[in-house]
Design a protein around this nucleic acid. Sequence first.
DNA 1: CTCCTGGACGGTAACGTTTCCAACGTTTTA
DNA 2: TAAAACGTTGGAAACGTTACCGTCCAGGAG
Lengths: 349, 349
Amino acid sequence: MSETFPTKPEVARPTMIDVARRAGVGLGTVSRVVNGGHGVRDETAQRVRAAIDELGFQRNEVARALRPGKKSTSLALVLGDLTNPFYASIAKASLEIAGQSGFAVVLGSVDEDPEGEKRAIQELVSRQVAGLMIVPDQGDHAFLEGAGVPVVFVDRPATGIEADIVMVDNEGGGRIAAEHLLSQGHERIAIILAPSYYTIGRRLRGFRRAHRAAGVEVDESLVIQLPEGNAEAAEKATREVMLRPDPPTAIFASTNFLVEGVLRALGELDQDPAVVGFDDFRLADMLPTPVTVVASDIAELGRRAARLLLDRASGADTRPPQRIVLPCALIERGSGERPPDSAANRNPR
Amino acid sequence: MSETFPTKPEVARPTMIDVARRAGVGLGTVSRVVNGGHGVRDETAQRVRAAIDELGFQRNEVARALRPGKKSTSLALVLGDLTNPFYASIAKASLEIAGQSGFAVVLGSVDEDPEGEKRAIQELVSRQVAGLMIVPDQGDHAFLEGAGVPVVFVDRPATGIEADIVMVDNEGGGRIAAEHLLSQGHERIAIILAPSYYTIGRRLRGFRRAHRAAGVEVDESLVIQLPEGNAEAAEKATREVMLRPDPPTAIFASTNFLVEGVLRALGELDQDPAVVGFDDFRLADMLPTPVTVVASDIAELGRRAARLLLDRASGADTRPPQRIVLPCALIERGSGERPPDSAANRNPR
DNA sequence: CTCCTGGACGGTAACGTTTCCAACGTTTTA
DNA sequence: TAAAACGTTGGAAACGTTACCGTCCAGGAG
């Protein structure tokens, strides 16, 4: 009873040749009509368009992209964990902008090693994408130099290649956070740092500058470098630092995920130092103590990157590599406005 | 002074022909080596591989996909707002699975009308993707029937076409939520419904079934249909229902975003009905009252969908359309365990 | 009236790959 | 020893589109 399975009708999709035959015109004419229709008599164009509608013709983008010079109408976006709202916002925004210009976005996700990133990028390049948006990992990106594809880096620059970069004012953000805490009299501020990404270094620099400007010395034992950038690591570090004989009166968490860990530890310990986070996050205002953060317009980051890349890809923009920096602003919600002495107010057991 | 701009080195990427010349073999041989190298003498294959390395050759995926039958090595994923962690999880998981098989994922986002969805899908099809994963909007998807591309629907089925579908047990989830509240003596349970997606209807059905099984009648005035699926709408609706003379003692929010609105309203009103949400969300356990939710493995949803689609695309799976349903489970955190009389405990002003 | 110009259109060569077929040399079989 | 079978290889066609180059016809200029 091994009758052949009725697999699929598998209707062959009509090509330009079919359209040409149907409309009684040449192949070139159909192509001209599809691409704006210059140099075609109005009446002819009508006939072609009618044939297109009747057959339900749709241009084969793959064949189109095969022609030399014609890159595909796709942009590539390479980033880390989409589950991180930060990355998700970038993805969404760039998708939106690309879509408006008829571009699709091919995603490459890389949670892994820098080697995995390189592989993912080359995969994408072999798909003839018109441009690359990359939230780069550490590691050298010089291999992109000869790829013949415009590249825009997002959130942080890459080494080994000079290209456009769209980022936020990390140093300014770090400065604002520290200034805010310092201005309230905090002098022992811990800063919790995710693994040494470029961004984190800048935030730390801003943090230090604010201290210098305020004439307060940074206690280096309160500059805490985490081995990993997740909430668990931050929770552990917070617990440790708060149990020291001389704990900080304020904590600056350099990442949205880190804030979560910090708050978790503080909740357990019943201690209430001031807390400021970097990057806003959903529900930040609904936590037991609403969380003060330094925020920036992440979606705008994605939009600017996509727009810039589209301009580069079309050749409309031939300026030297740009460096776009978006501002950060403080959002006061409560956790960052606790005075220094409140840390001593440990709730009685 | 109009010297020509040093636009780009624009190194022509080597093709198989270049490799063939370099290795002193024919074009076909190179192709055979690149595709697994069957039917090529080992020594010849070595030479070809050496040439590939020296030239840094990489196969042009676009040209490859042009051949008839050979779809591209890309899957398309069409979904709503990536900013919603639910969608983001699906995207991340499917990306991961696709990547393991060397497939890229092209994203199509559709916040707009059903018409926008159709356009996005057709765009994607014109890119010769090997398969489509769609989180469908309302509207007829019959137009996909003749597209000649395998389709897997995610989270909810679509009308007008019979295709694979991977979803969670919405009815079971709704039932579990209601059972949990009913078992604690709640008899007036409000259910807040996002606009009539398929999923929400199922959750409501489970909600009703649990009531019937418990012998409790559903007060239809507590079945609240929102005009929009966002937190604001839920906040408004919650405020209204809680201010009625006979407010509910429990609320079931049918969506993660709705929970936010519900809690916001309750916070303002200083009222404490039991609350259960559908779908888990970050920080749910850190809110003033940790939120009890009915959760399922969303990432698994994406993984299963991607795997199924890959099997369909490769022709490895020719079974009739599958229907995969993932279970839901209750996560008790506190908000759903408040007894009925606690609602009366309005905090004194 | 002839020549020229220019717009509209048809035909065809690419693009880089895969696949098929033919050709070749070697080994096995009759 | 001849024929057949097999494995390895080269060459060419095809995929669907765009770009270029002619051809054709109409109309204006000389």
